[in-house]
Design a protein around this nucleic acid. Structure first.
Lengths: 330, 330
DNA sequence: CGTTGACATGTAACCGGTTACATATATGAC
DNA sequence: GTCATATATGTAACCGGTTACATGTCAACG
């Protein structure tokens, strides 16, 4: 029952050949006689032979695995990104080694260290790290592709086109006749939060230079969305639109407005960013980001790089699309 | 720049010791003089030494990695389960190798085959496979723990206590005075769907033997929830409560009821199962399942088993809790 | 017929760790 | 001082693949 698994030498003995021939068949090399190939395959079947991955990667110095380091994401995103990555990886015969990373940069370093030597390359998503911490954490000798991470001259970087997305939504809100738009920003230190609020400022200046630009800072949670709107109301600030940096905050805002009886969208429009599944059910207008697509692209690009493609490094932006639903209608 | 990474022999030379001493320090063995240990650590630091994982697993026949095979889950679940697993795995020094599996049993086999030899054990979640297909797919020589999968005498199996959860909700609905409860089931072939509808039937017979038991079959999507309720209305069926087999269907049901102007909860109560994040926002009553907890338990148990614990095999049920919100209130 | 080259196969070193066993040194008992 | 014992370290084989190089075979060519 518990007999040790067959090795390449067992196969060689069984087929009456040398290990080199077995290996050649295994790797599809040329210079193998068809008869020999047939004998080898028969022997492998007979013994139920499966090559030992560790031995193989020891001698080739390749693991055919890629490490994925993700932050503690909101549920919906996590699954989507991973789904896209898994798709691309399995198409190319690679496996995914997963690790979640916590905000702390020391832990980030540790997460990547563990993978060192076990993967051929890394995919890192670290919107919460500074450029320096990130540069520190990535082992210098490992190829890596970044997703939504600070700029870095030595790695390919895939990002959401936050500017484009924000522009779409601001244009949409203005087109709906909104004049007093308040932007609820994510927590400072987060890359996307920073880009989105900067883009909001820019979009307003460009599209409606006469209108006030108002930005208040939250932390991406629904609670902060609720709190910020309560605060706006308490301050007596006038506004006819809330554009939150993500859907969760937008939902919080919606909640508060409903509670106090302010009608959406007739009196105040509400918009988010991300298009989480929930958004559709609540009729929340938002900006849709194709996270699965980003995961897929990142993996493809990394594997191309591992296998010798020399496409230049770049910072590439994935364009989001506007999803106009009830909360911004009239 | 591209100098090859240091090996254990480089460290030995640098420290003026033998490879055995380095290895002993590395693995925390006894019989090492403190001075020696110090010298070794210095040498390792000086050279930036990192042990080669492939070599290590070749000689120890252990990879310190576990394979995780998940179905194409709904976004929220996926992330949660993985988060729990990652937590448990990193606490014990293991890495997670991830693969998603599609409904097809042939692909399931393939997914697990790829991991063979690269992991010490497997965690499999396969609510959509038959017991036979599953038995076929799992390599016989790999320890494995199952989650929400068909019964199997040779593996530890972690399941949601669907019966307990359904019982809680049925009791809650009856306590609220509901007399005509309709259960929207998930698609046949799915284990949880089957258990939940059987449990519904049982709960009704036990708690309210005089009331009618009505079950209609959907497929876990919100669209099917919408469709089923439309159908009920078209048929003229009387009902004062909808208990869906998952939250997505419940949301669909809610949508349809709202559209046609039937008041929730005064006229009809609506309940789901899972407690996806969205449920809270919509005030949906549901049964909460701690998926992160399940993932965590599964990994702990697998590692215990790998490291020699001999706890007996079992089928363990994780108890869900009732979350009563607005849609079942009066 | 001898030489050359293409093709097929085998031999053995190597990848970088772990560890059984051998050896060396210190400690203590008698 | 001798021997037993505990502790510290080194030597070399081994894990299971890959592959450079050597060897062997055969056909074609001058």
């Amino acid at each position: 029952m518990a007999k040790p698994p067959a090795t390449i030498r067992d196969v060689a003995r069984h087929a009456g050949l040398s290990v080199a021939s077995i290996s050649r068949v295994l790797n599809g090399h040329n210079h193998v006689h068809p008869d020999t190939r047939k004998k080898v395959i028969e022997a492998m079947d007979a013994l139920g032979y499966i090559p030992n991955a560790a031995a193989r990667s020891l001698s080739t110095a390749k693991s055919h695995a890629i490490g994925v380091v993700l932050p503690d994401l909101h549920g919906e995103f996590f699954g989507e990104v991973v789904r896209g990555m898994d798709k691309a990886a399995s198409e190319r015969g690679y496996l995914l080694l997963l690790s979640t990373m916590h905000a702390d940069s020391r832990l980030a370093h540790q997460a990547m260290g563990t993978m060192r030597g076990r993967v051929d390359g890394l995919i890192i998503m670290a919107p919460q790290l500074s450029a320096e911490d990130l540069a520190q954490a990535i082992p210098a000798d490992l190829p890596a592709v970044l997703i939504n991470s600070p700029a870095d001259a030595t790695h390919y970087n895939l990002r959401i086109d936050n500017r484009g997305g924000v522009m779409l939504m601001v244009r949409h809100l203005l087109a709906g006749g909104r004049r007093n738009i308040v932007h609820l920003a994510g927590y400072s230190g987060n890359l996307d939060a920073a880009e989105r609020s900067a883009a909001f400022r820019e979009a307003m200046q460009m599209l409606a230079p006469d209108l006030p630009v108002r930005i208040i800072e939250g932390d991406f949670t629904d609670e902060s969305g609720e709190r910020l709107v309560q605060q706006l109301l308490a301050d007596g600030t006038e506004f006819d639109a809330i554009f939150a940096a993500n859907d969760m905050m937008a939902l919080g805002a919606l909640q508060t407005l409903r509670t106090v009886g302010i009608e959406v969208p007739s009196k105040v429009a509400v918009a988010g960013f991300d298009d989480v599944p929930m958004a559709r059910h609540l009729g929340l207008s938002t900006v849709r980001v194709d996270m699965a697509g980003i995961g897929e692209r990142a993996v493809r690009r990394l594997i191309d790089q591992l296998e010798g493609s020399t496409e230049p490094l770049a910072l590439v932006r994935q364009s989001p699309t506007l999803v106009a639903r009830a909360t911004t209608g009239r």
